[in-house]
Amino acid sequence: MPAQIVGGIGGAVLANAMFAEPLVRLPSHDRSAGHLWLGEVVATTGLVLLVFGLGRTAQQRLAPVLVASYIGAAYWFTSSTSFANPAVTIARAFSDTFAGIAPGSVSPFIAARLIGAGVGVALVLALFGRSTTTPATAPAATGEPELAAARR
């Protein structure tokens, strides 16, 4: 997580430089509103459900395209524009552009994301139950059915 935060801040500084903006200018865009936080809860809940659902249905190979598609869609279907993860939220506090977020607005977004993660995990458990295997030992991940068939 520290590497993501440092990378995000570095990316914000670089973007500011590319658009001839001051390298760091704390934004004044107050984004403190319940509907924005609800958008983050919804976006995070869906993302957690998607990632764990893919794992529980042995469809991990689809994760790169589906996660990227979900994040892109969440930008449009949430009032918050789905900041995606805490590192992105923190990084957006370093740019006073349309995407910026006032430093005082960062903590509630991170809290909303934690709530969304909890709701997402609860839905995963309700829909898929507790997993008895880990991805490393799941038959689909190790190719065990193919090995068993080859031994016959």
Rank of each mutant, 00 (worst) to 15 (best):
Ala3Thr: 11
Ile5Met: 13
Val6Ser: 02
Gly7Ala: 12
Gly8Trp: 06
Ile9Lys: 04
Gly11Ser: 11
Ala12Met: 13
Ala12Val: 09
Val13Lys: 00
Ala15Cys: 09
Met18Asn: 02
Phe19Ala: 13
Phe19Asp: 04
Phe19Val: 14
Glu21Gln: 15
Glu21Val: 01
Leu26Asp: 06
Pro27Gly: 09
Ser28Glu: 14
Arg31Thr: 10
Ser32Ala: 10
Gly34Ile: 11
His35Pro: 03
Leu38Val: 14
Glu40Thr: 09
Val42Asp: 00
Ala43Asn: 04
Thr44Glu: 06
Thr45Met: 13
Gly46Asp: 02
Gly46Lys: 03
Val48Trp: 01
Leu49Phe: 15
Leu50Lys: 07
Leu50Asp: 03
Val51Tyr: 09
Phe52Thr: 05
Phe52Pro: 01
Phe52Ile: 07
Gly53Asp: 05
Arg56Ala: 13
Arg56Val: 06
Arg56Pro: 04
Gln59Tyr: 00
Gln59Ser: 13
Ala63Ile: 05
Pro64Asp: 08
Pro64His: 10
Val67Arg: 08
Val67Phe: 09
Ala68Val: 11
Ser69Thr: 14
Tyr70Phe: 15
Tyr70Pro: 08
Ile71Gly: 01
Gly72Phe: 13
Ala73His: 06
Thr78Ser: 12
Ser80His: 06
Ser82Gln: 10
Ala84Val: 15
Ala84Met: 15
Thr89Asp: 03
Thr89Glu: 01
Ile90Met: 01
Ala91Asp: 08
Arg92Phe: 07
Phe94Gly: 03
Ser95Leu: 04
Phe98Ile: 14
Phe98Pro: 00
Ala99Cys: 00
Gly100Asn: 04
Gly100His: 10
Ile101Leu: 14
Ala102Leu: 02
Pro103His: 07
Pro108Ser: 07
Phe109Gly: 04
Phe109Ile: 06
Ile110Cys: 05
Ile110Trp: 11
Ala112Thr: 10
Arg113Glu: 14
Leu114Tyr: 01
Gly118Phe: 09
Gly120Tyr: 08
Gly120Val: 11
Val121Gln: 00
Val124Cys: 10
Leu127Ile: 15
Leu127Asp: 01
Gly129Met: 08
Arg130Trp: 14
Ser131Lys: 08
Thr132Lys: 12
Thr132Asn: 13
Thr133Leu: 14
Thr134Asn: 06
Thr134Met: 12
Pro135Val: 05
Ala136Thr: 12
Thr137Met: 11
Ala138Glu: 13
Ala141Arg: 09
Thr142Gln: 05
Glu146Thr: 03
Glu146Asp: 10
Leu147Gly: 02
Ala149Cys: 00
